[in-house]
Simulated scan of single mutants.
Amino acid sequence: MRTFRKRTTRTLGLTGAVAAAALLLAACGNDDAMSGMDHGSTSSATAAAPSASGTFNDADVMFAQMMIPHHEQALEMAELADGRAEDADVKKIVAAIEKAQDPEILKMKAWLKGWGKPESAGMNHAMAGMMSDQDMKDLAAAKGKDFDRTFAELMIAHHEGAVEMAKAEQKDGGNAEAKALAGEVVTAQTAEIAELRKILDRL
């Protein structure tokens, strides 16, 4: 009986050790699986919101730093249309600017944060197409057709500056998503420039 008990105890002990080892391996496997899931989630998040994981260069950083305040001023100009604009086509362009550029600002800010770079390059007034304080005051003082005409003239110049910066990003940038956004800016704002010129022709 003693021998049986010893053997039983030893067998149970060995069985317990094997079971524990199996559980440990299973846990490790689960950890690896969870780790893989985490990596997958991170990759998905990275793809959804650009971060420092993507390659980028100084041109990408400059593009974002300059385009953010450029877009912000375009939104300020668009906001002035409320209660001042008269032309239906001007109002459509204003709505298109607000719909496109606010999300683009958020996207570029996310890039800069992920890249560990500041949002501003401190060269706002040196950027192509930026309005002066007097330009903004003149626009704010205008109403009706006068506003529509002034808005169209100023926004054409503003868009031309954005297109110039976007083309430079397409040429010199290294980040695929930044270059893709630059392409969208070129396409959308070139089309809006053409529409604004048509508006000017008939005002």
Rank of each mutant, 00 (worst) to 15 (best):
R84C: 00
D138I: 00
A166V: 01
M155S: 08
Q189P: 07
S120H: 07
G122P: 02
M165I: 03
W115T: 12
E169N: 02
N124A: 03
D87A: 14
D135T: 11
H159K: 04
E153I: 06
V90A: 01
I105D: 09
A182E: 14
K92E: 10
Q134E: 05
R84S: 03
A191S: 12
M123H: 15
A121W: 11
E195M: 10
Q134H: 04
A95Q: 11
K107N: 13
A180K: 14
A188V: 08
K171P: 06
A194S: 12
D138T: 02
K179W: 15
A180Q: 10
F151V: 01
K143M: 03
G173S: 15
D102V: 08
A142N: 00
E104W: 01
A152L: 11
K91W: 00
E192N: 04
A178G: 12
A182C: 05
M155K: 05
K137T: 08
L106R: 12
V163N: 06
I105Q: 08
D138W: 02
Q101W: 11
E98M: 10
D87F: 04
A142F: 09
A188P: 14
G144D: 00
R84V: 04
A128K: 13
V163A: 12
I97S: 04
K167N: 09
K117Y: 06
I193N: 09
E153N: 10
D138N: 10
E153P: 04
M136Q: 05
F151Y: 11
G122D: 15
K117V: 13
K137N: 01
A95E: 15
E195P: 12
Q134V: 09
M165S: 02
G144T: 02
N124C: 05
V185M: 09
E119Y: 08
G122N: 02
A152K: 07
M131V: 02
T190S: 08
G183D: 14
S132I: 03
I97V: 07
L112H: 03
G114L: 01
G114A: 03
G83S: 00
L139G: 03
E177A: 07
F151I: 00
K109E: 14
Q170R: 13
A121E: 13
F147H: 00
P118C: 07
M127C: 13
G129V: 00
M165L: 12
A182S: 01
A182V: 03
A180C: 13
M127F: 13
E164N: 07
M131P: 05
F147M: 00
K109F: 03
M130I: 15
N124D: 10
K109C: 12
T190W: 06
K99W: 09
A121M: 08
V90M: 10
T150M: 02
F151L: 07
L181P: 10
A182F: 15
G83L: 02
K99P: 11
K113T: 07
A152G: 13
S120L: 04
H158N: 14
M131Y: 00
N175H: 11
E160M: 07
G129M: 03
E195F: 05
A191D: 11
E169I: 07
E177V: 12
E164D: 05
A142C: 06
E164R: 15
G116W: 01
F147K: 06
G122T: 08
